[in-house]
Design a binder for these strands. Structure first.
Length: 363
DNA sequence: TCCTCTAACACTTTTGAATCGC
DNA sequence: AGCGATTCAAAAGTGTTAGAGG
C-alpha cells in the first residue's frame, strides 16, 4: 500500500515540542490528587488543558487532538480520606478524541499562541450523542495530545503524527468530589464557583427539591449546537482490508498482561519532562480494536519506580492489587532523550491509517 | 448500610444580539 | 452605509448536597 505522500515527506520531522501552559496549576492539583467531575451532560475540565507548540513546519497543516488514556486497570474508591483500589477497571467506553477547534491550521498558527482545550467535556454517559469524551467514574486517566499533519480532519496522515502527555495531568474521574482539598482548590481558582463560595452555604436551605419543578433552563441542545464533527471512533470503518489486517496484528502484539504504570509514579522521577509516548506498550481494554488510537513501533524498557513514593492509591491496599506494571510510555527523561523519543514516536502510515480520525470539537 | 450517581440550586462568567455613535 | 464600541439578557458553567438507586 502506497504511503500518502505527505507521510513520507514528514517522516523526518521530529522537532515538535509541546509544553503544558498551566503546569503550576496542574501540579497544585496533582499534589493533592486531581479529581475531574464527569456528568451525564458533560463537564468541562478544571484545570483545563492548555498547551504550547513549537518546532512545527510553519506552512504545513496540522490537526491537534486529545484523547483520554486509562492510567491503569483499576477502579478506585475514596475511603478514609484517601483513594484505594476497588477492583478491576470497567471495560473501556468508546474511545473518543477531541479535536482542537482551530484544526486544521498551519504550523505557524499553532505556534503563535497557546492552545486551549477549555471546551472539551467529559461525560460518564456511554450513550452520549454529542461526541464528548466518555470516561468511567472512579477510574484514573490522563489526557494525551496528538499532533497530526493533515489538510483536514478527514485526510489525516497518521504517519506524521506525534503524541505527548504530561504526568501532572493524571486525574481521577468522579461524579462528585471526594477530596475536600480538591474542592477548596477548585473554588479558589475557578471563577464559576464564586457563587458557592459566597452564597452557597445558605442556598440549599431555599431550594425546592421537588421533581415536579420545571427545568431551570433550556437545554444546551435547544439553544445551539456547539459540538460539530462529532462521531465515535467506534463507528468508523477501517480504510482498507490491509488496514484491517494490520489492526488485528497490532492487537495481537499487545500482551494482555501489560498494564500501565501509574503516571503518578513516573512523576516521582522526572516530573518536569515532556515526552512522547511509545504507544505500543499501552494496553487498553477496548472492546473494538478500531477504537484504539494509533500505536507507534517504538519500545521503551521498563524503568523501576519507587512505589512507596506514590501518594495514590492508599498503601493500605492489598499489594497484589496495586502492583505497578511497566510504563505505558517512556520515563520522563532529559531533553535530549525526548528528542530521540520524538524521532521514535513516528510510526509509519500503515500503523496510523487504521485509525480513522473522527472526533468532536466545539467550534 | 454503604457507595455512587443524579438533579436542583444560587451565583458568576460568557456569549451574542441589539443598539448607539462616529 | 459601514464599522467598532457598548449594553444587556440569556445561556453556560460552577460546587454543594439531598435523595434515589443499586
Amino acid at each position: 500500500m502506497a504511503l500518502p505522500r505527505s507521510a513520507a515527506l514528514s517522516y523526518h520531522q521530529g522537532r515538535t515540542r509541546m509544553s503544558l501552559d498551566n503546569a503550576d496549576l496542574w501540579k497544585s492539583f496533582h499534589s493533592i490528587g486531581t479529581e475531574m467531575i464527569i456528568t451525564k451532560h458533560g463537564r468541562r475540565m478544571f484545570p483545563h488543558c492548555s498547551i504550547s507548540l513549537s518546532g512545527l513546519q510553519p506552512l504545513a497543516k496540522y490537526v491537534i487532538l486529545v484523547d483520554m488514556v486509562p492510567v491503569d486497570g483499576c477502579k478506585y474508591k475514596w475511603k478514609k480520606e484517601q483513594w484505594e483500589v476497588a477492583g478491576k477497571a470497567e471495560p473501556q467506553p468508546p474511545c473518543r478524541t477531541y479535536t482542537h477547534p482551530d484544526s486544521p491550521a498551519v504550523g505557524s498558527h499553532w505556534m503563535k499562541q497557546s492552545l486551549s482545550f477549555l471546551k472539551m467535556k467529559l461525560t460518564n454517559n456511554t450513550l452520549d450523542q454529542h461526541g464528548q469524551i466518555i470516561l468511567h467514574s472512579m477510574h484514573r486517566y490522563y489526557p494525551r495530545f496528538h499532533v497530526v499533519q493533515a489538510d483536514s480532519p478527514y485526510t489525516v496522515c497518521w504517519g506524521s503524527s506525534q503524541t505527548f502527555s504530561f504526568p501532572e495531568t493524571v486525574f481521577t474521574a468522579v461524579t462528585a468530589y471526594q477530596n475536600p482539598k480538591i474542592t477548596k482548590l477548585k473554588i479558589d481558582h475557578n471563577p464559576f464557583a464564586k457563587g458557592f463560595r459566597e452564597g452557597g452555604t445558605h442556598s440549599h436551605s431555599k431550594r425546592c427539591r421537588s421533581s415536579k419543578s420545571p427545568p431551570r433552563k433550556r437545554s444546551t441542545e435547544d439553544r445551539k449546537n456547539l459540538c460539530t464533527s462529532s462521531l465515535d471512533l467506534q463507528r468508523m470503518p477501517s480504510t482498507s482490508p490491509l488496514v484491517q489486517a494490520e489492526t488485528s496484528q497490532t492487537s495481537r502484539q499487545r500482551s494482555p498482561k501489560e498494564t500501565h504504570l501509574s503516571a503518578w509514579a513516573l512523576e516521582q522521577h522526572a516530573p518536569e519532562r515532556i515526552h512522547t509516548e511509545p504507544l505500543e506498550l499501552q494496553e487498553y481494554d477496548y472492546s473494538c480494536e478500531e477504537q484504539m488510537v494509533p500505536a507507534s513501533i517504538a519500545y521503551y524498557p521498563y524503568r523501576p519506580v519507587d512505589y512507596s513514593a506514590i501518594p495514590f492509591p492508599s498503601r493500605d491496599v492489598d499489594q497484589t492489587q496495586t502492583r505497578i506494571h511497566p510504563p505505558p510510555h517512556p520515563p520522563f527523561t532529559t531533553e535530549q532523550d525526548t528528542q530521540q523519543q520524538e524521532q521514535h514516536s513516528h510510526s509509519n502510515a500503515s500503523d496510523w491509517s487504521q485509525y480513522p480520525l473522527f472526533s468532536y470539537s466545539c467550534w
